[in-house]
Design a protein around this nucleic acid. Structure first.
Lengths: 228, 228
DNA sequence: ATATTGCATATTGGATCCAATTTACAATAT
DNA sequence: ATATTGTAAATTGGATCCAATATGCAATAT
């Protein structure tokens, strides 16, 4: 526990404020599943890790709370949030509305640079064998494809609700397969983008998300699921 | 400036933390337009108003920043955010997707109590003559209609982006008419809810939002607009 | 053995204090 | 009169310290 944090806690360069750096680090820990739902984050502990006082830690926690990733509880610390089945469904409902639309707009403005970056992330994802790293590479890939959409509010929403899903999935489940399907789908989406076929990219994104939802629900529903 | 804040700064009951109370108060000031885009909120000033140290003020500001309502700038204070025309369009794009859907679900679960509350807000809105209070009553009305939707993520998103719009509209514009139309539309939406006609409520909500967007854009586009 | 009580400890929310640096403004030079 | 420079004030980010209270555990009573 906290292993990744310990390695990250070294830098603290002056480019960003301490609370921003701590926010990023804690967010990564949560959405990567290293900090699981129900776990308690102690201010003092994080402060010591980063060699700072509790003040910037608290500000980072306030931000995470405002995003819904944790809930600050007095005397108990910051408790990592979980999700109910209904909430998962609701989030996918929103993603299905927003993401196909966003990629459609993005394709219309997509630069060569973005395409190349997406290709890199796509390849990385395909070649990765460590399942613990799939989540982040998946995020990198999709966020890259979306970034030229010129829809900052859409992107903020997508980022925040995807964080919640990732936190849930990475913490509760051990994804062992389904990745080969994701690879195929990613390649198809990327191809549609390269071909500037916005409508097709949107449609593929829709079915990609739908598939992810279906798979997730099947795993959760199984009594013998790989749940914690 | 800050007048409402001064009157609010009295209580500080122990039910909520100071930072939560200050968050609510500052949010109200911003979305009511009392604090306008570009204005600077000084930590020390707010702290003195509420008779607290700057610590809870800073936590409230962090939360507002995470919501996008302000931007904390060192040595300059918290600067109230503005919106570009594109951003306004984007926000209405999202509202048009989410709000009709939400009211549709809400109607299916709407309690008698909610209907009565909505009726009260609707009446209040209709009878209000102080244009400065229209914004809040409008929000109360719509949020009440949405609250039985069992879609907490939708509601959070709607609340946050509506805050941005309200902040912009209330700060930049003086709405003098168009309210009579809003009254009629509100009544129609409420009637559809009472009649449990979810589809109609959704459709009316859609055109209500569309109308608001069109009106807003017309005002902004006018060279002689009531812009600041 | 189990339940209860009391105290030490842990933990967070907030207050006060310090450091860094920008901003404002007056004094000075041109 | 205008531009430049230097210094004091303002302002935020962060550190340290204090208050309140919940929690954990040991001692005690039943």
């Amino acid at each position: 526990m906290y292993d990744d944090l310990k390695t990250r806690a070294i830098d603290l360069g002056k480019t960003a404020s301490a609370s921003d750096i701590i926010y990023d680090a804690l967010r990564d820990e949560i959405i990567s599943g290293n900090l699981k739902a129900g776990e308690s984050i102690r201010q003092e502990y994080i402060a010591k890790l980063f060699n700072v006082s509790r003040i910037p830690v608290r500000e980072a926690l306030k931000r995470l709370e405002s995003q819904g990733l944790i809930k600050n509880v007095r005397y108990k610390g910051a408790i990592v949030s979980s999700l109910s089945k209904d909430e998962i469904t609701e989030i996918f409902e929103i993603r299905l509305m927003l993401e196909p639309l966003v990629i459609k707009h993005a394709v219309d403005n997509m630069t060569q640079e973005t395409l190349e970056l997406a290709q890199d992330y796509c390849t990385e994802f395909s070649e990765e064998t460590d399942s613990g790293k799939w989540g982040m590479q998946n995020r990198n890939f999709h966020e890259t494809l979306y970034r030229d959409s010129k829809r900052p509010f859409h992107l903020k929403i997508i980022r925040e609700i995807s964080d919640r899903i990732d936190s849930y999935v990475r913490a509760q489940l051990v994804l062992t397969d389904g990745m080969s399907l994701a690879r195929i789908e990613h390649n198809a989406i990327l191809e549609a983008c390269v071909a500037r076929d916005a409508k097709r990219a949107a449609e593929l994104t829709r079915s990609h998300i739908k598939g992810a939802y279906t798979t997730l629900m099947e795993i959760i529903d199984q009594p013998t699921a790989k749940l914690d």
